[in-house]
Write a protein that binds this DNA or RNA. Sequence first.
DNA 1: TCAATATAGTAGGACATCCGACTATCTGAT
DNA 2: ATCAGATAGTCGGATGTCCTACTATATTGA
Lengths: 169, 169
Amino acid sequence: MPKPEPRLAADPIAEAHRQWVEHGWGDAADGMAAITSLMRAHQIALSRVEAVLRPFDVTFARYEVLMLLYLSKRRSLPMRTIGSRLQVHQTSVTNAVDRLEAAGLVVRRAHPTDRRATLVELTRAGLALAERATAALNEQVFADPGLSASSVGTLVNVLRRMRRDAGDF
Amino acid sequence: MPKPEPRLAADPIAEAHRQWVEHGWGDAADGMAAITSLMRAHQIALSRVEAVLRPFDVTFARYEVLMLLYLSKRRSLPMRTIGSRLQVHQTSVTNAVDRLEAAGLVVRRAHPTDRRATLVELTRAGLALAERATAALNEQVFADPGLSASSVGTLVNVLRRMRRDAGDF
DNA sequence: TCAATATAGTAGGACATCCGACTATCTGAT
DNA sequence: ATCAGATAGTCGGATGTCCTACTATATTGA
């Protein structure tokens, strides 16, 4: 006799929402579900992206740095600018650039006019890797992000306001 | 004369989308924007949540474990179940429970019938903290998650399908 | 009954993120 | 011109997540 298919539990977030209401927290239940959904969706998306990037020996954090440089006019930016654009702490930039530099994908250069600052410049290898990794990501994740085309648009619109309210732009 | 307000840059994700199209990656631009928006929105939400939880000396990861126990019938669950419900790796559960136990919020107990398994049980202190932290989160974050009520619903619906496709339920 | 396989947890390591502290350098106000 | 305050980066530490072992215990099938 075949083992009975393991019955998948109900949507855990819907379940949590129900419990929130039961506990008298109904006015916060929707918000809890929204935030929790965001956390889980992020985890899913990050996992897919990291899987595609793994063969290139870069993480998404480092890929983002590479692309920021790739898309910049001079293929070079100050550390500080990288942190601001990516909305991460300076020390995270230091960490990412350390690893990218060790892999030969970027180099640190002196800033011509501000001796406090450090410019990060994409190397030829970094440029090549940025292009190949982007091709892979575009094909394997971004072209089909796991949402319908209309949902993609809706999601971006909803989150744009959240980002604006948080001061991103 | 007041220092001129620092001109906020344009939406960085819209900017990235434009560059994607320029580089001939138009078919992946929307997906890139969606995934990137998700990453940033997660960062914003997590930051707000952690700020509220900090006074309670728990992180969101540990709070989730506490609430899972709090909402369970016996206020106790096997480690493995916690990992499955929260969709995180076993070792992450070990880590969170280690810290919760050190703080006196949970205790590990022997499983009555399976000697491989360990039950995690909420202590009285853990229960009290779960309630106080939830009250704070409900009031300060979930009741006003930074989105309109309709956006909240839309977001949850869009992400539900993404989670279902990923095999969450 | 017993060996092969599966499952529960833990240990150690790699990464990423944030925070606070510290150095070097730049800017602006007196 | 100087000195106080702001800014750029780095360092060390705490935390979370995942991965790969490795141990102990259950389950299953011959």
